[in-house]
Computed example of a mutant assay.
Amino acid sequence: MTTSKSSNWDDLTVRIMSSVAMTIIGAAGIIMGGVWFQMLAVFVTAVMVWELWMMICGDEPTKGMLLAALVASVLSGQIADGTLLGLLLFFVVPVIGVTQLKNERVTFFVFALGIQIAGWGLVHFRMDYGFVWLLWLMLVVIITDVFGYFAGRSFGGPKFWPKISPKKTWSGTIAGWIGAALVGFVFTLFTNAGPWIIVISMVLSFAGQMGDIAESALKRRMGVKDSSTLIPGHGGLFDRFDALLGAALFMLLVATVFNVPGVAF
């Protein structure tokens, strides 16, 4: 007899194998940096916009692929340019998408714009702050997800936001914050960040969780389980990187508002 407890872990093997593959590819891109990380970021960003389109208008895949190709072109150009005027080009894809949609125009506009800005932000975070701090950002997001997954499956308890994301629990959410704090603490041991990095890590963890919640709300609104079926055990790239989008947008906001200088180490 299969218990509901054991069914909680049915997808663990597939999730781990997919996670290992994504970690290897992502780690290689982050370590090499430069054009390699740029190509990876452009690819992931373009695919996520395609997934967004398919969730909203799945019966017109060709338009989604053309928009994804345009995203890749625009983002590649923006990485090379980077001026404030050039950033206005990020509105091109959302505006074109809006003109082609009959429904959910605001939804597409907001998410398509956010995805592109986050992708651009990650590339510049790697260039301006270097490998160490991009690694920190990624580890906070990953550990938040890992701690949240195991705590939520092990302890369960009250739901964090049942109407939006019925699987997320307060135990998993808080465990994610604790995991992020541990990442921050580890980074105090070999960087000059100081204790503040622990608090920032926890806030970054929450921003990532809100990115996850936002995508969950989108899927619930569209009536789909996953953004696509590209990654076994994880759904689509949007499902896997939604938290990273939230974290990247938060760090971009912090760096812009507080004019944090680049350190690149």
Rank of each mutant, 00 (worst) to 15 (best):
G58R: 05
G148A: 05
I96V: 11
A151L: 09
T62Y: 15
L52V: 04
L85K: 13
W120Y: 14
A151S: 11
L75F: 01
A151F: 09
S73K: 14
G64H: 06
V140R: 01
L67G: 00
T62I: 15
V44I: 15
S76D: 13
V141E: 11
G77M: 02
Q78F: 14
S76Q: 13
I143C: 05
V106C: 10
Y149A: 01
A72G: 12
V132P: 07
N103A: 14
V141R: 07
G121C: 13
K63A: 11
V71C: 09
Y149D: 02
V98P: 00
A46G: 10
L139S: 11
G121N: 13
I117S: 11
T83Y: 09
K63Q: 13
A112W: 07
Q116E: 10
D81W: 12
M48S: 07
I96G: 05
S73G: 15
A112K: 02
T144K: 01
M127C: 15
V123A: 12
V74A: 04
W50V: 09
F131M: 12
F91A: 15
R126N: 03
E51L: 03
W50G: 03
L113S: 08
R126S: 02
L113R: 06
I79G: 08
N103R: 15
V140E: 09
L88K: 11
T107C: 10
L89I: 12
F125E: 12
R126E: 05
D59W: 12
V92Q: 08
W50R: 08
I56W: 00
M54E: 07
G121I: 10
I115R: 07
F131S: 00
D128H: 14
L139W: 09
G130W: 07
G130Q: 07
P94Q: 07
R105C: 07
M54S: 13
F147H: 05
T144N: 04
A69I: 14
Y129D: 07
W133I: 04
C57L: 14
A112G: 00
V44P: 04
L113E: 04
G82F: 00
Y129S: 01
N103P: 09
C57W: 12
E51Y: 04
V49M: 00
L89F: 15
N103Q: 15
T83C: 03
A72Y: 06
V140T: 08
F43G: 12
W120Q: 05
Q100S: 12
M48G: 08
L66F: 13
L67M: 03
A41H: 05
Q78T: 11
G119T: 02
G130P: 01
T107R: 05
I96A: 10
V47E: 03
Q78P: 10
